[in-house]
Design a protein around this nucleic acid. Structure first.
Length: 122
RNA sequence: AUCGCAAGCCGUCUUAUCGUCUCGUCUCGAUGCAACUCGAGGUCGGGAAGGAAAGUCCGGGCAGCAUAGAGCAUCGUACUUCCUAACAGGAAGGCCUUGACGUUAACCGUCAGGGACAGAAAGUGCCACAGAAAACAAACUACUCUCGACCGAUUUUUUCGGGCGGAGAAAAGGUGAAAAGGUGAGGUAAGAGCUCACCGCUUUGAUGGUGACAUCAAAGGCACGGUAAACCUUACGAGCUGAAAGGCCAAAUAAGCCCCGAUCUUUGGUGCGCUCUCACCAAGACGCGAGUCUGUCGAGGCGGGUAGGCUGAUUGAUGCUGAUGGCGACAUCAGUACCAGAUAAAUGAUAAGAGCCUGACGGCAACGUUAGGAACAGAACCCGGCUUACAGGCUUGCUUUUUUU
RNA sequence: GGCUCCGUAGUACAAUGGAUAGUAUUUCAGAUUCCGAUUCUGAAGAUACAGGUUCGAUUCCUGUCGGGGCUA
């Protein structure tokens, strides 16, 4: 598996895991994103989900484009995420207007740096 | 050539690097006698959003449930004929209507639009304000005198005027969206379809047309205001629920408790929203009885458990090309193609170039340089329509202005 | 994905098809007060949008736009 690939198994799909992430996970804001994280016990890999609220973006085209940009930024930068702790990560787009790819990429890079600075729990 | 309108069609492309989904193929691994099974992968090959994928406004396919018959209710549709699997869709036609042009006193004709276009002489309701009156036509004002008595003038008779009573008639009355056939002539005390001509209306008949309807003729004499996108009537149609439907596999099962209702025979219940017919079903004990207990059936709640995968699901009323039939929507036949299949949801990111559009500069022009822009919008079981959004381009028709022959 | 309901002043609600769209509150101005509050007087402010039916539409019909609710 190449270092820039992004396979299905790296996505967070099970409803139980998603509920666990939203109920027990910690979070921080990093414009234009909000990052949720929680230690992952079910998988050997980091797993991530991307979300754009339909309340703020009514057209499906806009939602899909933002999710694709977030996913692309994570795919190209995920190799810098340390493997000491396996995380479940949720990236939620909270800004009210669309932003271009470069701004999303810098936000994702800073989010990964912040996750690396968190010490692994027990 | 230019400006606008309508209809139809198209609605960016190429390359490089990294990456996603899917089908095939190959390699490796697992189980194994063997694999058609499962998993991982590849310098492998093919494919991957739209004209509206949107809104969810109609109609079907497909699936499950329900289904004894009749009537009613409810919902929908509404000029005619045809197309279609079906439709509130489409085609052709009829009628009404708006505008322009032609000719004119009009009728009429041509062209371009619009029309939810059954029934108002089956019944009910409503018609504000204004107006005499708003719906069985009657009252009021005004009108007339073949009438009556009275008063005044003249005063012999007669004649004139006035109000009162009576009779006639429904023509006039500033309103209003709408005023009870219209115009003209006759007629009359005054008038009136009272009579006549033309127009309109109604009825009947004939002819043409599949039909909506049209044309012609005769008769009736004016009754019949508008509103059905008010209730309603008539005709026709409709069982309900939607892929979170449904099927298979795996996993997990849980009894129990509470509460309400029904239940034992001249009655009650169930069966389709209601009624009728019809069919089917319906316990024991105690007690005179009311009722109580046990049981059965049904609805709800508490409690406890599972919510993962496969299928449905991408070959179809399918697309393209041609021929034939039809005014046309469309149909038939032949050939050819396989063209997304995701499921916390796949098409992206970066860079370069070509073409397109706009502005600026240079140039007579072709064109060049430079800066910017590229719409509406993302499949979610599948089709046929409708509606709405849309940068830019192409074709056809009509129109405005201008030039040449 | 499917079903369903609703759009009236800044806000919460009214209004048989009949014209000036009403009530409360809010805002503004004035009066009262030494200054405020309260109170009084006056003013401003709306039928989501576009068509149609009707003499006349907030109301009836159709289509857009927006919002809410339900649904394993």
């Amino acid at each position: 598996m190449g270092q820039f690939s992004f396979h299905k198994s790296e996505r967070l799909k099970k409803e139980k895991q998603i509920k666990e992430l939203f109920n027990k996970g910690s979070s921080f804001n990093l414009y234009p994103l909000r990052v949720l994280y929680f230690p992952n016990s079910a998988s050997e890999r980091h797993q991530i989900l991307f979300s754009v609220p339909s309340r703020t973006f009514k057209k499906a085209v806009d939602r899909n484009r933002l999710k694709r940009r977030m996913r692309e930024a994570y795919r190209l930068n995920k190799s810098s995420l340390l493997d000491a702790q396996k995380w479940m990560i949720g990236l939620i787009y909270t800004a009210r207007e669309t932003t271009d790819y470069s701004k999303i990429e810098t936000a994702v890079v800073r989010a990964i740096e912040k996750l690396n600075s968190i010490p692994p729990s027990g």
